[in-house]
């Protein structure tokens, strides 16, 4: 029984975070009567939407053993471009398509730089982080730009009775899961993260796939940017600062390893939920908003520590098995 549970967890790496979500939610439900209301759930889902959508893109990147520090800057650039274009042209379609296209392009540039120059993804995207953020402020002249009220539809509006951000999250989630599990791109991404050497020896399209995952990361960041912009009501200078770390935290909480090779979209989305759940819990106990960071950091540490401990236990179990096999060998000899 115990061993089957272990094997399920080792295959479905998202299960622990899903369980953590449930346990924590149950706890909050006991503590607070407000928690279990539909509106609270909806608002939590909406809150987690931005991070969750970006985490889906980040999962692909981390699965190839890469990382994208520039996501927050892409988010900011995209918001700036959209707000500016909308203000200048009053055309939603132009602003929408330009913003998403641009976000994809910025992601693609990351991918091209990573594959072409072979500098570590961390440094590469740290450099583009600075470049993209500078470009965005340049674009708007460091102005705050409000967006029209009807933009709020994207942030709070409803379609078929469901809030728009949630619909977007569900669509991107389904697409992401399909892409990772049923297409060559997804399998190749895992392969590259598992062993870059083998991927090259097996003639896999390493460059194409790597560029593609960064492009996907850019594109979903663009979508997140518009949702966030709609919710905030306008461009502000602080948008997107540090969000890449929240996104990476969500992915790691979801059971994906920075070393690449494996990971699940479900886990990352649950990871994003969990972060919001924590915020919600802190909110319910009226904690200072400044404490959120401390709790998030501690949760992240706890998660990796637990992961490390279970890996160690797995190791010692393997050693035990080996020992038994050795005894057995000698007994039969």
């Amino acid at each position: 029984m115990k061993s089957t549970l272990n094997s399920i967890i080792s295959k479905q790496k998202w299960l622990p975070i899903a369980l953590a979500n449930m346990v924590f939610a149950a706890l909050l439900a006991i503590v607070s009567p407000v928690f279990l209301t539909l509106s609270n759930f909806q608002s939590m889902l909406i809150q987690s939407g931005v991070t969750a959508i970006m985490a889906i893109g980040m999962t692909f990147i981390i699965i190839t053993a890469g990382i994208d520090i520039s996501m927050g800057a892409i988010l900011f650039f995209c918001s700036a471009l959209f707000a500016q274009l909308l203000q200048d042209t009053q055309s939603y379609w132009l602003a929408f398509s330009a913003a998403i296209a641009c976000a994809t392009l910025l992601g693609t540039i990351n991918g091209v730089l990573v594959t072409r120059f072979k500098i570590s993804p961390l440094i590469t995207t740290l450099a583009t982080y600075s470049i993209y953020r500078g470009m965005a402020i340049h674009l708007t002249g460091a102005q705050n730009i409000p967006v029209p009220r009807e933009m709020g539809f994207l942030g709070n509006g409803k379609l078929f009775g469901l809030p728009v951000p949630i619909i977007l999250l569900i669509v991107i989630f389904i697409l992401g899961v399909y892409l990772l599990n049923h297409t060559r791109l997804g399998l190749y991404a895992k392969a590259i993260g598992s062993s870059a050497r083998s991927a090259n020896e097996s003639n896999l399209p390493v460059t194409k796939v790597t560029v593609a995952v960064y492009a996907i990361g850019g594109m979903v960041t663009g979508i997140s940017a518009l949702i966030l912009l709609a919710r905030v009501g306008g461009l502000q200078s602080g948008i997107g600062i540090g969000i890449e770390f929240t996104v990476i935290a969500a992915v790691i909480l979801g059971g994906t390893k920075l070393t690449g090779g494996s990971g699940t979209i479900v886990g990352s989305v649950f990871g994003a939920f969990f972060l919001v759940l924590i915020d919600n819990g802190l909110n319910l106990v009226n904690a200072s908003p400044y404490i959120y960071d401390i709790v998030r950091g501690s949760v992240l540490l706890a998660a990796v520590a637990v992961d490390r401990l279970s890996a160690k236990r797995q190791e010692s179990r393997l050693i035990q098995i080996k020992k038994q096999r050795l005894e057995h060998n000698h007994a039969t000899n």
Binding site: T183, R184, L187, K190, A191, S194, R197, S198, N203, G261
Partner: peptide, 26 residues
């Protein structure tokens, strides 16, 4: 030095060079 992918399954490893199905649907 084997050119295998540790994180992938046996079946995925064997077929990764010529995957059946289309690029968008393995």
């Amino acid at each position: 030095e084997l050119s295998l992918f540790g994180a992938l399954t046996v079946a995925e490893n064997m077929c990764i060079g010529q995957l059946p199905g289309s690029a968008t649907k393995i």
